[in-house]
């Protein structure tokens, strides 16, 4: 969590050929409210809500604040370019698919 941005709920799954990152974005109505950046092995997602929302940090008596932005950063175990990353936004869920086919496999000798 950074400043007054909320970290949204997310789920990351990996298969042999891709990594799937889904992010739940309530109050985000359009893909135009979402920006995705790729920095080497980091994917950053910033999304603007269509209205200001009141949020309380943690489940107990945390400090409440108003916000209209989500931010989520996902660190990958390898470097990617924007060509390896595809994103769709449907039913309030952002789905990012990171293609692993360009990752170079290096053989390690066994001694």
């Amino acid at each position: 969590m950074w400043d007054n941005r909320i970290e949204p709920l997310s789920d990351i799954r990996e298969t042999n050929d891709r990594i799937m990152i889904s992010v739940d974005l309530p109050f985000v109505n359009s893909k135009d409210q979402i920006e995705i950046y790729v920095y080497e092995n980091l994917i950053e997602i910033v999304a603007n809500t269509s209205k200001s929302i009141r949020w309380r940090r943690g489940i107990s008596a945390g400090e409440a604040f108003e916000t209209s932005q989500y931010e989520k950063r996902v660190k990958l175990p390898f470097t990617v370019t924007e060509d390896d990353v595809k994103a769709t936004f449907k039913n309030g869920i952002l789905l990012i698919i990171v293609d692993k086919k360009n990752i170079k496999k290096r053989k390690v000798n066994v001694y």
């Binding site: 709920l9 739940d24 309530p26 109050f27 929302i53 943690g58 489940i59």
Partner: peptide, 15 residues
């Protein structure tokens, strides 16, 4: 009220 519920119930769904 779907968006409001999704936001307010995020802690409970994680637990």
């Amino acid at each position: 009220k779907a968006d409001e519920m999704r936001l307010n119930m995020s802690n409970l769904v994680q637990q």
